[in-house]
Simulated scan of single mutants.
Amino acid sequence: MKVAWQGVYPAVTTKFTNDDKLDLKMFETNIQAQLAAGVDGIILGGTLGEASALLEDEKDTLVSATVDMVAGKVPVIMNIAEQTTKAAIIAAEKAKKNGASGLMMLPPMRYKADDHETVTYYKAVANSTDLPIMVYNNPVDYKIEVTLDMFEQLAECDNIQSVKESTRDISNITRMINRFGDRFKILSGVDTLALESLFMGANGWVAGLVCAFPKETVAIYRLQKAGRHEEALKIYRWFLPLLELDINPKLVQNIKLAEVATGIGTENVRAPRLALSGAERKHVLQIIETGIKTRPELPDYLNL
């Protein structure tokens, strides 16, 4: 299935049962809520998906099961976060075999590769597959920045098509557009900068709080793209305290707690992560409860 790299792409959480197995029933409940809200793709195995805690067979199951669940409505994207080029190439092969339509790729994990090593890593994987690739550029959390000069080299690979822009520097969107035009699609990867990024020309939004609030997220995107900026901004201002739950070391626990509150998830996380407790839990619940109580009425955003 062709990947347009525009619109809202939820980086979905992975659901677990109380005995720490994949909870595909609740996972499908969430996926169907995303589809009903009008999302444009599904991303598996990102930070929110607890990728580092998933077993290899679980990743295979998630991809194939999600492909079945979406039934061709939207593309399924698998994240690659590996320590070696060899493992990344194998992961790309498995993602395609299991039905993924595209890949999101982090730079090499653990080892802080230099620019040349990072470019070589991306090119090796890109040249090993025909799946389209979105570069995940997040130097704040993963310590390697994919610079504009590096993108110049990556542009040689036709299937490196987009970037999840998570540098936290809004002006980087303008730099990308000034240098490359529309060669790379740009998707905001930071919830609290998403609308600002769309105003600056980003094509889409890889979203986190969409996991709990899919309709509001898609409404913001579609209203902005339709030129109804004030309506988008009003919803975004309501959303911001919730979006800030995504820029936190415990974003997985925060967002899963929000999914419970909206009825499309469970709180179960995989150790060493633990569910929130005490004052921390009370604080997050207060933000979620306030958001739900003041939830805005949405226009008919699906028919703009």
Rank of each mutant, 00 (worst) to 15 (best):
R222H: 14
Y221P: 08
K234I: 06
W205V: 01
R237K: 12
F199S: 11
L62N: 02
L304R: 06
I89Y: 07
N30I: 00
K97E: 13
R281Y: 04
N248V: 00
G265F: 05
P132L: 07
T167I: 08
E50F: 11
A194M: 14
D40R: 11
E267Q: 13
I292G: 09
P108E: 02
G263N: 06
S171V: 12
M176H: 11
E231I: 06
V190D: 05
K59C: 06
R222N: 15
V284Q: 09
G102R: 01
A53C: 06
A279W: 10
I133D: 01
A100G: 09
C211G: 06
G265W: 02
A92Q: 05
E297T: 15
K59R: 14
G263S: 03
P241C: 07
F151V: 02
M78C: 05
D114W: 04
S197K: 05
K250C: 10
I287Y: 03
V74L: 07
Y111E: 04
N98V: 01
A36F: 01
V146W: 03
I220D: 11
L44E: 04
A71I: 02
G45I: 02
K94Y: 00
V206I: 13
W5D: 01
D141S: 12
L274Y: 13
D115P: 12
V63D: 01
S197E: 01
M104C: 11
N137V: 04
M134H: 05
A91V: 03
T192E: 14
F199H: 13
L240H: 08
C211R: 00
L223I: 07
I170M: 12
L106Y: 12
A202M: 13
I160R: 07
D300G: 01
G72I: 12
L62V: 07
I133E: 00
I160K: 04
L242D: 08
G46I: 00
I80A: 00
G46T: 03
T294S: 15
I90T: 14
G181Q: 04
D169K: 15
G201K: 08
W205M: 03
Q224M: 13
K282T: 15
L62E: 09
A51V: 11
E156W: 06
L276D: 08
F27A: 02
R183L: 11
